[in-house]
């Protein structure tokens, strides 16, 4: 925690900023459809459905995102 506070203080006092380290033109691999967490919503939802009906655990399924954030 101390280290985190130190880093925050340094960032705030020195004006350092972290810049995005993967530029839009470097996202060709992430833009590939196979890089989506789930390629087919209708199929992914159904499997979550199967699991939730037969297992006590629920929630935090996520998984619809992925890819590069670009079309």
């Amino acid at each position: 925690m101390r280290a985190l506070m130190l880093v925050c203080t340094l960032v705030l006092t020195t004006g350092c900023t972290i810049t995005p380290w993967v530029a839009p033109y470097e996202r060709q691999y992430l833009a590939d459809p196979i890089m989506g967490f789930e390629q087919d919503p209708v199929a992914a939802r159904y499997m979550n459905h199967v699991y939730e009906a037969r297992e006590a655990a629920r929630g935090a399924e996520g998984g619809s995102g992925g890819g590069c954030g670009c079309n």
């Binding site: 939802r45 459905h49 939730e52 009906a53 996520g62 998984g63 992925g66 590069c68 954030g69 079309n71």
Partner: peptide, 23 residues
């Protein structure tokens, strides 16, 4: 016996919500 399935219905609807936001 299928109530758990019905209960998960809300989730199904919002599946795409967590998709990357800018598109």
């Amino acid at each position: 016996v299928t109530r758990l399935i019905a209960r998960s219905a809300g989730l199904l609807l919002l599946g795409p919500l967590v998709a990357v936001a800018a598109v």
